[in-house]
Write a protein that binds this DNA or RNA. Structure first.
Ligand SMILES: [Mn+2]
Ligand SMILES: [Mn+2]
Ligand SMILES: [Zn+2]
Ligand SMILES: [Zn+2]
Lengths: 134, 134
DNA sequence: CAATTATTTTACAATCATTCTAAACTACTT
DNA sequence: AAGTAGTTTAGAATGATTGTAAAATAATTG
């Protein structure tokens, strides 16, 4: 993604295109599916020779999530993961290397779910398929 | 559960029936399905007038899990939950009150799951159905 | 292009769930 | 009863994350 495209993307979402946000958006939104934690992303920008504080990474990941550019995933190890795939979908989680693989929602059929309790409605369904070496 | 039954249960699993473990086992294994965190369980024993350290609660929950008396559930809020239902099953999670409800594995049908990657095998499947007020 | 204002970044402290450590205590064996 | 191995505990440490307040920077205005 060019810097100009990244700037435009941020403007579109009413986020000031600061040096830090441009760097992170360029890394994240290259069209490929990415799963990052604050720490892994911090490592990736550092590898590019850019220094920015972990607090800014957290702030930015949450802002991107708020505007709908990212999805938060919890329950994978101890840290919070952020996903560039914002479609409703599920995950394989390889417990031997902490690797996530997308499963399109259309690839899983869930049937016979019991009725929700009185006055409650389903907000979402998260499926995690844990993988290990055979 | 009588104290004697609790003592026998612990002996059966080669765990010394200490005052602390007897109290926790009696609370947990009364035959009803329970979902606790270290903190909620700590509160419950405190309410019974028994004082024991949070470290012991953590130790005991992990020991009970290791021998198969409990199951660990992650991805529900920030804390680790422990479940007296050790059958393979899933959960409704009510996000308005942090309440968990069991869904028997037999009540959910998952079909069309994509193939696992080369050399990987499915270790387990966790389904969390998030509930909110309608 | 200043000057002003609004937003963002950052260093650093604080929080919270959990684990570690090492000393005091207790259950089991002899 | 004494000895030993296992357990509990207070308190420190850890690690992910969030809060704070000052310094830096982007946007706006004249
Ligand atoms: Mn968050
Ligand atoms: Mn654990
Ligand atoms: Zn994903
Ligand atoms: Zn359960």
């Amino acid at each position: 993604m060019t810097t100009q495209n990244t700037v435009d993307l941020l403007r579109l979402y009413k986020l000031r295109p600061t040096r830090q946000r441009v760097a992170l958006a360029a890394l994240l939104f290259d069209g490929t599916a990415r799963h990052v934690t604050a720490e892994t992303l911090h490592g990736q920008v550092k590898d590019m020779g850019i220094t920015l504080s972990l607090a800014t990474i957290y702030n930015t990941l949450h802002q991107f999530t708020k505007v709908g550019l990212l999805k938060e995933i919890r329950g994978i190890g101890d840290a919070t993961w952020f996903d560039t795939n914002i479609d409703q979908h599920h995950h394989f989680f390889d417990i031997t290397n902490d690797h996530l693989i997308d499963i399109p929602a259309s690839s899983i059929t869930i049937s016979n779910l019991p009725d929700s309790p009185q006055g409650k409605v389903i907000d979402g369904i998260d499926v995690i398929v844990r993988l290990s070496d055979e």
